[in-house]
Nucleic acid binder design. Structure first.
Lengths: 346, 346
DNA sequence: TGATTTTTAGGGAACGTTCCCAAAAATGAG
DNA sequence: CTCATTTTTGGGAACGTTCCCTAAAAATCA
C-alpha cells in the first residue's frame, strides 16, 4: 500500500529546513538545532511516517549495527540460550543479531567468516571450531570468543573453565566409587578445547593412580546422532562391564541420547552404568533417569560475551580480557553411588 | 592489522579499468566485459583481497539481503529447528538471517516490527502473537506467516493443521478410554490460533457427547514455567481424579515440565494421569515416561516458509498461498491404555 | 573498404545518510 | 548601535555501489 519511501529530503521539504537539519535531529550524534526547527522536523517526521534508514547511515558512519553470533548448533538449548542472552543485551543498544549455526562444520564456519569479511559487521561473537586465530583476527571487526582457546591470547574470551568442570565431574564419579571412567568428547572441537578436557581427564587418572586406556576415550559428534553412535560403540567393546563403570559425556545432548540408546539395549543408566553430562540443559532434569551433570551458566556466558563486545566496540584499543566461569555439579540420578568400597579390579 | 578498506576504486585503478567495469564484474547483474578486462579485474581483486560491500550495493539496488525471522522462543527446539531450516534454505541464496525471539510478548514483537520498518529487510518470516494483520502488511517487505491465522487471507502462510493435530491427539485419548480430558493452552497466542485449538476441543466434546467443563481448560505460558504452573493449578483442582483422566498440552515443553512437576507430587504420568503433548521435540523421547505427542514437521515447515518467501520476493504480485501440514501421532508411554471398558462416571 | 551493428568501456548521477565548512542569524558586551 | 562571539543553518562532498547513457572499439556484413 504505502510504498512511496520517504527520505530525509521529503521531511526537510515539509518542515521547511535543509536535509542537514533533519539529519541533525535524527542522527545520534546530532548537532544543535533551534527548538523551532526541532519542533517542525519532528512534526514532519510524524506526519510522513519517516523511518531513518540505518543502512544508508551506516555507509557514511561505517557502523552497521549488526553483530554476528556464530555458534555450533542453535537447536541445542545450551547455545540457543546463550544466543538469547546476547540478543537481550545487544538489542537494547540498537544492534541486530545475526545468528549462524555452523553444525560443528569447518566448511559452514568458513562461509560465515566469508560473510563477516564482506558484510562488515560491527562485531562478532564466535564459538569457533577452527583454531586458526589469525583468521578470526582478520575479520575486520572486533570479536569475542566463547569457549576457552589457549591459542587466542589477545582476543576477549568468555567461557566455562573446562578443566575445572571436567574435574568436578570426575571427582564426583571417584567419590561415588567409580574407578573405570570412560570419556566421550568431540574431535570436531578445536584441538585446544579438546585437549583441555582430555588433559583434565589424564591428569585426573594420573593423580588417582588409574590407568589410561585409549579404548575408553570416544570421539563423537556432540549431537543426538553422536549419542546413539557413542552408545553403540561403547556396547561393542568386548566385556565392557569389566572395562568401564562410568561415562563422562562432552555435553548433555550426547549424554541424553546415549542414555536413550542404552536403555533400548536394556542397560539402565545409573544402575548398570553411571553417566554424567555437561551443560545442564533443561531436558536433563526430565530424562529417565534424570541426568547428573555439570551446570554451565549459559545466561551469564552470553551476557558476559555481549558486554565484552560492547566494551571493545567502544574502546578498540583496550587489552584483551578473559572471563571463565566455574561449572557447578548438579546431582541427579544417572550416577550410582557405589560408595568407596568398590575397589578397582584391573 | 590490514585495515585499509579497499573499494571498487582501488581495484579499478590496479586493473587499469573504470569502476564501472569492476562493478560489472562483481555485481550479480553484471553486463558484458571483455575476457581481458575480466582477467585483469579478477587478478586485482585477488591481489587486493577486495570484498564487495553488500550494504553499499544494497543502497543502490534496494536489496539488503537480510531476512528477519521472528519466532516466540528460539530456545525452544521446535522453533530453533524451524529457524535452522530457514537458514539452510536462505543462506545459499545469499541472505543473512536475523532471528528475533519475542518471548510471546507483544511488546518485544512490537520492537521487531519497528526494526523491520526501519532497517528494510528484504523479507520477513513471522510467527506473530498479534492478530493485527494490517501491521504485518505494512512492514514494507514481503512476509510469510508461520502458523495458521484465519485473519490473514492474503499473506503466504505455512503451518500445521492445528485442528487436525488437536483432533488426532483427542481421538487417541478417546480410543484409549479417556473421557475426561483437560486442555492446556496459551492465551498469549493469537485469538484465532487459540480458538482453532479450543474449537477442535469443543467440537470433539460435542461429537462424543462429553460435557464441556471450563475448569478443565487451563491457560498458561507455553514454556517450562508455564508447565510447572499448569501442574500446580491442575492439582489444586478439588478431586481432580474424578474430574480429569487426561491432559492435552499445547506444546511439549509445557507437557514435559508439567510431567516433572506431577512426578514431584507423586503422580505418575501415564498411570495416574495421561498426558499428551504437541510438537515432538527431541527431548520428548527421553523423558520419563516418554511423551506421547503429535509430531509437527518442523524442518518442512521452515523449508516451506523459506521457499514461499523466496518465491514472493521474486514475484511480489502472485496470489497468497497457504500450506498446512498434518500432525502425526507419536505413541509413547505418557498415555495409559485403559481400553474402552472405562465408562464415564459423571 | 566502408557502412552498420554489436560489444565493451567510462563518466556521472543516484541511493539515503552524515560530516565538514562556511555563511547567516542570534546573542551579548561595551 | 556596533562589533565580537556563539549558535544555528544549508550546501556540497563523501561513503561504496549500481545504473543509465553515450562514446569508442570491435566485429560483422555487403
Amino acid at each position: 500500500m504505502s510504498k512511496p519511501k520517504i527520505s530525509i529530503h521529503e521531511v526537510a521539504r515539509l518542515a521547511g529546513v535543509s536535509k542537514s537539519t533533519v539529519s541533525r535531529v535524527v542522527s545520534e550524534s546530532g548537532g544543535s538545532v533551534s527548538p523551532k526547527a526541532l519542533e517542525a522536523v519532528n512534526r514532519a517526521i510524524e506526519q510522513l511516517g519517516y523511518k531513518r534508514n540505518v543502512l544508508a547511515a551506516g555507509l557514511r558512519t561505517q557502523k552497521t549495527y549488526m553483530v554476528l553470533v556464530m555458534v555450533p548448533d542453535i537447536a541445542n538449548p545450551f547455545w540457543s540460550e546463550i544466543a538469547r542472552a546476547i540478543q537481550d543485551k545487544l538489542e537494547p543498544e540498537g544492534y541486530s543479531v545475526v545468528i549462524g549455526s555452523t553444525d560443528w562444520s569447518e566448511f559452514r564456519e568458513e562461509r560465515y567468516y566469508e560473510l563477516a569479511r564482506s558484510s562488515r559487521f560491527d562485531g562478532l561473537i564466535l564459538n569457533s571450531v577452527t583454531d586458526n586465530i589469525d583468521l578470526i583476527k582478520d575479520l575486520g571487526a572486533p570479536g569475542v570468543l566463547i569457549g576457552e582457546r589457549s591459542a587466542a591470547q589477545d582476543i576477549d574470551t568468555v567461557g566455562t573453565d573446562t578443566r575445572q568442570a571436567a574435574r568436578v565431574a570426575l571427582d564426583y564419579l571417584y567419590e561415588t566409587g567409580h574407578r573405570r571412567i570412560a570419556l566421550a568428547t568431540s574431535e570436531h572441537g578445536s584441538e585446544r578445547y579438546l585437549s583441555l578436557r582430555s588433559q583434565a581427564y589424564k591428569e585426573f587418572l594420573a593423580e588417582k593412580g588409574l590407568p589410561y586406556d585409549p579404548e575408553l576415550v570416544f570421539s563423537v559428534n556432540l549431537d543426538e546422532e553422536g549419542g546413539r553412535e557413542l552408545a553403540q560403540r561403547f556396547l561393542a567393546l568386548p566385556n565392557w562391564r569389566d572395562k568401564a563403570d562410568a561415562l563422562l559425556c562432552g555435553n548433555d545432548i550426547l549424554a541424553i541420547a546415549a542414555m536413550g540408546e542404552f536403555r533400548a539395549f536394556g542397560i539402565i543408566p545409573g544402575v548398570d552404568l553411571s553417566i554424567i553430562g555437561m551443560d545442564d540443559i533443561p531436558a536433563a532434569a526430565q530424562t529417565y533417569p534424570s541426568l547428573t551433570t555439570v551446570r554451565k551458566p549459559r545466561w551469564r556466558l552470553g551476557t558476559a560475551a555481549a558486554e565484552f563486545l560492547l566494551e571493545r566496540m567502544r574502546n578498540p584499543g583496550k587489552p584483551a580480557e578473559k572471563r571463565l566461569f566455574p561449572g557447578e555439579l548438579i546431582i541427579r540420578d544417572s550416577v550410582s553411588r557405589k560408595r568407596k568400597n568398590d575397589e578397582d579390579k584391573s
